[in-house]
Measured scan of single mutants.
Amino acid sequence: NKEKKVFISLVGSRGLGCSISSGPIQKPGIFISHVKPGSLSAEVGLEIGDQIVEVNGVDFSNLDHKEAVNVLKSSRSLTISIVAAAGRE
């Protein structure tokens, strides 16, 4: 599966507009579980089932849900590497 990078700058009070969840035991990782229509996440093409592999240089493969949320909230400017639809297989 091809990795792609998206860049998101949080402007004003707009949030990311997506929710994440941890994958099942047999498929660990952090996946996008919800994308709000019209949100920044939707605008850059994030979709439900995409796996987040890295954010701002932080490897997401071994993070738990709480740590992942903290990384996503730690910066107003995010570089997110995803594997599209990895969670839909």
Rank of each mutant, 00 (worst) to 15 (best):
N1I: 15
K2I: 12
K2E: 02
K2Y: 06
E3Q: 13
E3C: 11
E3K: 11
E3A: 10
E3F: 15
E3L: 11
E3N: 14
K4C: 01
V6L: 15
V6Q: 05
F7S: 15
G12S: 05
S13C: 08
S13G: 15
S13A: 12
S13F: 05
S13L: 06
S13V: 06
R14M: 08
R14D: 13
G15F: 05
G15Q: 14
G15T: 13
L16V: 04
G17P: 01
C18L: 15
C18D: 02
S19I: 08
I20Q: 00
I20A: 00
S21C: 13
S21E: 13
S21V: 12
S22I: 09
S22D: 08
G23C: 06
G23S: 08
G23W: 05
G23Y: 06
G23E: 06
P24F: 07
K27I: 05
K27Y: 08
P28A: 07
P28I: 01
P28Y: 04
G29F: 01
G29E: 03
I30D: 00
I30T: 06
F31H: 04
F31C: 00
S33R: 07
H34P: 01
H34T: 08
H34F: 10
V35G: 00
V35T: 04
V35A: 00
V35D: 00
K36S: 14
K36D: 11
G38W: 04
S39C: 00
S39L: 00
S39F: 02
S39T: 06
L40P: 15
S41T: 06
S41K: 01
A42V: 03
A42Q: 11
E43I: 05
G45T: 00
G45E: 03
L46I: 12
L46S: 01
L46F: 10
L46H: 03
I48R: 11
I48C: 12
I48K: 12
G49Q: 00
G49K: 01
I52M: 07
I52C: 03
I52Y: 00
E54P: 00
E54K: 14
E54H: 06
E54V: 03
E54Q: 13
V55S: 03
V55F: 01
N56K: 05
V58I: 13
D59E: 08
D59M: 07
D59G: 07
D59T: 08
F60E: 01
F60Y: 07
F60H: 04
N62P: 05
D64Y: 11
K66E: 15
K66V: 11
R76A: 10
S77A: 12
S77E: 15
L78M: 10
L78Y: 07
T79V: 09
I80G: 04
I80D: 03
S81T: 15
S81N: 13
I82Y: 15
I82N: 04
I82R: 07
I82V: 15
I82E: 05
V83H: 11
V83R: 15
V83C: 09
A84N: 11
A84I: 05
A84T: 10
A84Q: 15
A84C: 13
A86F: 08
R88K: 14
R88T: 13
R88Q: 14
R88H: 14
